[in-house]
C-alpha cells in the first residue's frame, strides 16, 4: 500500500514536471532552428526590416509585427466593452437562473474551432464590409471582429472570477451607505477586481496574438504595412503557417525566428498576467 502510494506520487510528479520539459524542449528547438538567421541578419534588421521577400533573402518581419499589433488592438477594442459588460452583468446583476444559462454559453464560445470562426467571418463579414465599406472584404476590421469574439470568453470568465472574488462585505458596506448597485460596482467592486481583470485582458491578448487559422481565412494575408482598417494584413503566426510548407534553408530558419519572437511575446504576456494576478492576493 505505502509502496503503491509512493509510486503514484512520483508518477504524478514526473508527469507534472514533464510539462516544463516540453516547454524547454520547444524553446530550445525553435531557438536552434531560428537563431542563426537572426544573428546573420541582425536583430534590428530582422525586427524592424520592412521587406519580407524570401527569394531575395530579405527577412524583415516588421509588416507582420504591425499586422499582429493592428489586429490584436482591434480585437481588444471590440471585445473589451462586450466582455466587461458580460462579466459585470453576470457577476453582479443577473439572477442565478440567468447566470446558469449564460455562463456555460459564453464558455462554449471558447470551444468552437477557430476554422468555424474564420468561416463565419468569410460568409457574414466579407459581404457586409464589401457592401457598406468597400474593398474586397478580407481586412483588419474583419479579423478584429472575429478575434474579438474569440477572446471574449477568456476575458469574460477571468473577469467574472475576479469580480466574484471581491468580498461580499465591500458590497454590503457600500449598499448600507446608501450607494446604488451600479455605484457600488463602479466605485468599489471594479477597482477591487482590477488586477484580475487586467490579467484576463492580457491572457486574451495572448490568445489574439497566437491565433492563426481564423486569421489566415479573414485577414487577407498581404505583406504590407497597413494604414487603414480596411487593408489586408499578415500576422506573425499566419506568416509561419502560410510559408512553412514550402520554405527551405534560410527562409525556413526565418520562419522559426518569427516563432522565437512569438514565443517570447506570449511568454512575457503570460508572466505579466501572472504577476498582476498575484499582486491582487498580496494586497488583499
Amino acid at each position: 500500500m505505502k509502496y503503491n502510494e509512493r509510486l503514484i506520487q512520483s508518477g504524478l510528479l514526473i508527469t507534472a514536471f514533464s510539462t516544463i520539459a516540453i516547454l524547454i524542449l520547444i524553446g530550445v528547438f525553435i531557438l536552434k532552428e531560428g537563431l542563426p538567421v537572426i544573428l546573420k541578419v541582425g536583430i534590428k534588421d530582422f525586427i524592424c526590416g520592412v521587406n519580407w521577400s524570401p527569394i531575395e533573402e530579405q527577412f524583415g518581419i516588421f509588416p507582420m509585427i504591425m499586422g499582429s499589433i493592428w489586429i490584436t488592438a482591434g480585437a481588444l477594442l471590440f471585445s473589451l466593452p462586450l466582455s466587461l459588460a458580460c462579466a459585470i452583468y453576470l457577476a453582479e446583476f443577473s439572477t442565478p437562473k440567468i447566470g446558469k444559462i449564460l455562463k456555460p454559453t459564453i464558455e462554449l464560445l471558447a470551444g468552437i474551432p477557430s476554422v468555424v470562426y474564420g468561416f463565419m467571418g468569410m460568409v457574414i463579414l466579407f459581404p457586409l464590409i464589401r457592401n457598406y465599406l468597400g474593398g474586397p472584404g478580407p481586412c483588419i476590421l474583419a479579423a478584429s471582429i472575429i478575434l474579438g469574439i474569440m477572446i471574449l470568453p477568456t476575458i469574460t470568465s477571468i473577469s467574472i472570477d475576479s469580480l466574484q472574488a471581491v468580498p461580499y462585505s465591500y458590497r454590503e458596506g457600500s449598499l448600507a451607505l446608501g450607494a446604488t448597485r451600479w455605484q457600488t460596482v463602479k466605485m468599489v467592486v471594479l477597482p477591487a477586481a482590477r488586477s484580475g481583470i487586467i490579467a484576463g485582458i492580457i491572457l486574451g491578448v495572448g490568445r489574439a496574438v497566437g491565433e492563426t487559422m481564423a486569421v489566415i481565412m479573414i485577414a487577407g494575408n498581404a505583406v504590407i504595412i497597413p494604414d487603414s482598417i480596411l487593408d489586408p494584413v499578415r500576422t506573425l503566426t499566419t506568416n509561419i503557417a502560410l510559408e512553412m510548407n514550402f520554405a527551405t534553408g534560410e527562409h525556413r530558419q526565418a520562419l522559426f525566428a518569427t516563432g522565437i519572437v512569438l514565443f517570447i511575446v506570449i511568454m512575457l504576456l503570460n508572466i505579466i498576467a501572472n504577476l498582476i494576478a498575484k499582486r491582487k492576493v498580496i494586497t488583499k
Binding site: 462585505s169 465591500y170 458596506g173 457600500s174 448600507a176 477591487a192
Partner: peptide, 18 residues
C-alpha cells in the same frame, strides 16, 4: 437611499473599501 443615509451601519469585521 435616504433611509440608508439616515441609518448607518457598522459591521462585525471592518469592511473598509480597498
Amino acid at each position: 437611499i435616504e433611509l440608508r443615509k439616515k441609518v448607518g451601519m457598522v459591521f462585525q469585521r471592518p469592511n473598509c473599501f480597498p
